[in-house]
């Protein structure tokens, strides 16, 4: 279970977010510039909040007031970027195994062949990212994050760069991930219909404010 209460300010932009994620999929919607990506970066540890706290099953990941900041590589939080962010100098296979190799054998949740089969990317393993289509890139990016065995998966507009036809091809894979792997997911998108395909639990973000609605409850101090 992830609980957070975060405050972050840069220039004139101020982000205030309180929420709680206890499994399943939560969609995070809102116009661009609302701070959705910033919230993911804060949770993943790519940015440091000015104040607040993030707890994962009670363990504090970050708390500026006490000088606690766990760097991203120690948080075990998977991240899928909008355009995949595959490493261009590595093959698909090397990309897939990049995080897998950093995980001790006992902590690995999935076998590479199981993930490549699930995402139907087995035939791409020797290719370089530049030779992949947009949809293939996103599936590889998803596989790379999954093989890292994350205990939480953050997806930042993973389908935004794809046309609606390709989206329809990827969404079933995301459903598969949701139904068979059981990793909690926070799914960011500005397209609500896309999110509704995966979950009916929605959070909204607007002008730096997170509204968790009925799905999320605010946490006490």
């Amino acid at each position: 279970m992830l609980e957070f209460d975060l405050h972050w300010q840069r220039g004139g932009f101020c982000l205030q977010a309180q929420g709680r994620l206890d499994g399943g999929v939560i969609g995070l919607c809102g116009p661009s510039g609302a701070g959705k990506s910033t919230l993911l970066a804060l949770i993943a540890g790519l940015r440091q909040p000015d104040a607040g706290v993030i707890r994962w099953h009670g363990k504090v990941l970050v708390e500026p007031a006490r000088g606690v900041f766990l760097p991203p590589e120690q948080r075990r939080i998977g991240l899928v970027f909008q355009d995949g962010c595959l490493f261009p100098h590595l093959t698909v296979q090397q990309n897939l195994l990049y995080g897998y190799r950093r995980r001790p054998a006992g902590e690995r949740l999935f076998r590479p062949d199981a993930i490549t089969a699930l995402l139907d990317i087995g035939h791409l393993l020797t290719r370089r990212p530049r030779d992949l289509s947009g949809g293939e890139k996103q599936r590889v990016a998803l596989g790379r994050a999954l093989l890292y065995s994350p205990s939480l998966l953050l997806l930042d507009e993973p389908l935004a760069s794809l046309d609606s036809h390709r989206k329809q091809q990827i969404l079933p894979f995301l459903q598969q991930v949701r139904d068979t792997l059981g990793i909690p997911m926070l799914y960011v998108s500005h397209a609500e219909d896309e999110v509704r395909y995966l979950t009916d639990r929605l959070w909204h973000m607007e002008a730096g404010r997170l509204h968790t609605g009925p799905a999320g409850k605010s946490i006490g101090p």
Binding site: A44, G45, P72, E73
Partner: peptide
């Protein structure tokens, strides 16, 4: 950042 979020 992707590399960091993959445990490196």
């Amino acid at each position: 950042q992707a590399s960091r979020s993959l445990g490196a």
